[in-house]
Nucleic acid binder design. Structure first.
Length: 323
DNA sequence: AACTTCCACAACCGCAAGGGA
DNA sequence: ATCCCTTGCGGTTGTGGAAGT
């Protein structure tokens, strides 16, 4: 026995909604509300399944929805919350009046995720890729690490080439435009792309071969991570900032950054469960001062001294919005 | 101008949770 | 306690338009 379909697919229209259908649905819901979605299409004279009607209403027709570009503040909120709760889109959308989980999910997948990747930050863990590699290095024996790194670099190379190639195009486009004071651009020589990749590989190998530089079981220290891994080489992250910052200027946008702390997600011990437990109070704090200010900041980690070397590229190579 | 690729957004699918009978 | 239905959710796919070649 298969699963019972949500509706008779034979008699149901699919695909894009027409303005007439939108009108029918909107006016029906305005009169009768949204009780029992299964009956709504039938009563409203629509050849749609109830589920499709519900989605159309909740994601598009609802009068309280906000359409159009996400603001910088909204993007900040999404990234901040995503670092805590992960892909809990409905939870994130609940903090953004007028935005749906679908909106947030799409925006994340098409824009924000790529931006973070372009900055050298893993969009899943919100940690620098270099930190993740260092974490791997602390948990595996050197021979395993070497094998893993070899495999990983094979994957990275394609990705890096893609990013660097895109950047080269950006450079060409930017030449006619006024230069942003925050950014510098690589030359377009392909040999420099190769050099950058080789440099990453070399430094990764170096880090792997020097495990004593990577103390085990040390949680990620965002303060040091920013001040050494990013701020040390990347002017876009001021060293004085005590917390992690998804400021818009960090993405190469105009406008001021609004700093926020990533203290809730520190180190490898940061689990989804813990994150969720902390969500409530964190969300409450969101509009005010960061009450835990630095609570999660741990002292004493030197992991990013080695880490910093790993991505020893010109600052803007990591920080520019390459994608 | 024609074709291809990329991107953003809308829509769909299947699973899980919640609630009433 | 169990079943069934409805709703909510997150992942995935489809589609139209923009951008690039």
């Amino acid at each position: 026995m298969g699963r019972i379909p949500c509706c008779e697919k034979d008699n149901v229209k699919r695909g894009q909604w027409t303005p007439e259908e939108d009108n029918k649905l909107s006016s029906y819901i305005a009169q009768h509300g949204t009780r029992n979605w299964r009956l709504i299409p039938k009563n409203a004279g629509l050849q749609r399944c109830g589920k499709s009607c519900r989605l159309r209403w909740t994601n598009y027709l609802r009068p309280d929805l906000k359409h159009g570009q996400f603001t910088d503040a909204e993007e900040q909120t999404i990234m901040k919350l995503h670092s805590v709760v992960g892909n809990r889109w409905s939870l994130i959308a609940a903090q953004l009046p007028g935005r749906t989980d679908n909106d947030v999910k799409n925006h994340w997948n098409t824009k924000l995720k790529k931006r973070l990747s372009g900055m050298g930050i893993d969009p899943v863990t919100h940690k620098p890729f270099s930190h993740l590699m260092a974490e791997i290095a602390t948990t595996l024996a050197p021979p395993q690490v070497a094998n893993l790194a070899e495999a990983a670099l094979g994957c990275f190379k394609d990705e890096m080439l893609h990013l660097l190639t895109k950047k080269r195009i950006d450079f060409q486009l930017q030449q006619s435009a006024p230069m942003n004071t925050n950014t510098t651009y690589m030359t377009s020589k392909s040999e420099e792309n190769d050099n950058a990749i080789e440099k990453i590989k070399l430094n990764l190998s170096r880090a792997i071969q020097e495990p004593e530089m990577l103390p085990s079981n040390k949680p990620w220290d965002p303060t040091r991570a920013i001040s050494t891994n990013f701020a040390g080489t990347c002017s876009a992250f001021p060293a004085s900032v005590t917390g992690f910052q998804y400021g818009s200027s960090s993405f190469g946008h105009d406008g001021a950054a609004s700093p926020w702390s990533q203290s809730m997600c520190t180190g490898s011990t940061c689990t989804a469960g813990e994150q969720q437990d902390q969500l409530h109070e964190k969300v409450e704090d969101e509009n005010g001062e960061e009450s835990e200010g630095g609570k999660g900041m741990r002292n004493g980690s030197t992991i990013f001294n080695a880490d910093c070397v790993l991505w020893d590229l010109p600052a803007d190579d990591l920080m520019n919005p390459m994608v």
